[in-house]
Amino acid sequence: MAADRTTAPIHRPGLAGAIHRGLDSDVFHSFKQSKVTMLAGAVTALYFLAALLAPWIAPHDPYDLANISLMDSFLPPMWMDGGDARFPLGTDDQGRGILSTIIYGARASLLVGFAAVLLAAAIGVTLGLIAGYLGGTVDAVIMRVAEVQLSFPAILIALLIDGVARGVLGGDAEGNLAFAVIIVSIGLSFWVQYARTVRGSCLVEKHKEYVQAARVIGVHPGLIVVRHVLPNVLGPVLVIATISLALAIITEATLSFLGVGVPPTQPSLGTMIRVGNDFLFSGEWWITLFPGAALAVLVLAVNLLGDWLRDALNPKLR
């Protein structure tokens, strides 16, 4: 490690330097090595762009009532008989274009996925650091709770939190509140993995010399944890975050599909699949299968990225 330091090129400061360092790193090198990973990266980037630019690239806003007309309902994709060039992938039962709903739905999926992962990481990392650094009773309590929660599947916990939130808020939550409920349910059901990993790394780090040195010169424990321990335990957190992003997206779609997630008036891939499921037998397969394929491709791409990141950041596999 010490030899690496001395032979490494002198880093230029600023943004340009950061980009240069990024392109020069081992991680990026292993990214370029695998074609599948690059494809997954490209697909994920495409989804992100589509989600960010949804209002500009979608043919129309499917959730603006002024834009949709029941006259357009149940149109097949444009290459089939009776298709309409305005709606390349057809329309659903209310005349919303499937392509536009997919773009807006992917936006919602990514938004919920990211927010839930951030929340889970924030809770998990904080509790993991507290448990690992303080030890003793605090550690025992936090880890016991984590163990109990870990023995139940996340989807069940998310469902329960969602059910309790419904009870507290009274029936169906509307609009932004529904999004908040679903983000909190998913976030609270995924924190355990972060806490366990961070606690483990923290236990190792806190006995290292730099932490002891900081302690000896009288740095406040909170500052030691945030400034010194935290940056050194973040690597595994990134890997868990990528893998659990795919899981969070699946969980959001599942909750919406079950009818307890995003309300039907809001765009969501899971909700679209549920709506389309009712029309599968009458022949309108495109309402379900296109959003389903969009969801599957997104999850697969994120999963592949997560797999690659796990291997790339694992020094044992180099």
């Binding site: 795919a246 699946i250 779609a253 599942t254 599909f257 079950l258 699949i273 499921n277 599968l280 397969w285 379900t288 299968l289 389903g292 969801l295 599957a296 999850v299 697969l300 999963n303």
Partner: peptide, 16 residues
């Protein structure tokens, strides 16, 4: 693929 496809999607595909 089996890991990436959500359960409900597999069910819908089979039904289809």
């Amino acid at each position: 693929i089996g890991i990436s496809l959500p359960t409900f999607l597999i069910g819908i595909l089979l039904i289809f």
